[in-house]
Amino acid sequence: MNSEHAIAIIDDSSSVRRALESLLRSLGFAVLSFESAEAFLTSPLALDTSCVVTDVEMPGLTGIDLYEKMRSDKNETPVIFITANSEQKVRQRLGDEPCVLNKPFEVDELADCINRAIATS
């Protein structure tokens, strides 16, 4: 059971957020949902997350900007990127470390990324 792990979903698309919320809850995770990186960063719940799943391309702070801001603030919460574009953009800036999933992705791929992230954090 994963209920002790809160997963933050950050995506500007409400339909993607709802789908991911439903999926992650069905896998037993507690889910926090945010429409922007800025909303996540200003939330008192941000510090209570075990893992962040974020879209790469969003208005304002992108997923990559969020990741870099978290690391500069010494926040080592694992981050998983989802993107409708090529993962190459993420890899060019961040290397091979973070998990990057191209939309559409398989449920098992996301679950594996989250479980690996939680296990190593």
Rank of each mutant, 00 (worst) to 15 (best):
D108K: 14
T49W: 08
A119R: 09
S13V: 03
A19Y: 11
V56G: 01
S86M: 06
V31E: 14
S22W: 11
P59Q: 09
L61H: 06
M70I: 03
K74A: 13
D112R: 07
A39V: 01
T120Q: 15
G28W: 11
D112Q: 09
V107L: 15
N102W: 02
S86A: 09
V100H: 01
S50W: 15
E38V: 02
D48V: 03
C99I: 01
P59L: 09
R25L: 11
E35V: 05
N75T: 00
E76H: 08
R18S: 13
P59M: 11
D55K: 06
E21F: 04
K103Y: 02
L27I: 02
D65P: 03
V56D: 01
L101R: 02
E38I: 02
I80R: 02
E106N: 14
T120G: 13
S50Q: 15
L24N: 07
V100P: 00
F81H: 03
R17W: 04
K103R: 12
F105L: 15
A46C: 09
V107W: 12
Y67S: 04
S3F: 07
F29E: 06
D73W: 07
D55Y: 07
L32F: 13
T62Y: 09
G60M: 14
C51Q: 13
N2C: 11
E109S: 11
N75K: 05
I114F: 07
I9M: 10
V31I: 11
R91P: 00
Q92H: 05
C113A: 09
M70V: 06
A111G: 02
V53M: 12
V107Q: 15
K69H: 13
D96S: 15
K69P: 04
R18Q: 14
R116Q: 14
D73F: 05
S33R: 12
L20Q: 05
S43L: 01
T83S: 11
D65A: 03
V90G: 00
F105M: 15
K103A: 05
L61I: 02
L47C: 11
V79A: 00
S36L: 04
V53Y: 07
S43T: 00
L66C: 05
A111Y: 05
V16L: 10
S22K: 14
R25C: 06
V16D: 11
R17Y: 05
A117T: 03
M1I: 05
L32P: 03
E21M: 11
D11K: 13
E76T: 04
S86C: 07
V31A: 12
D55V: 01
H5W: 06
V79M: 06
A37N: 09
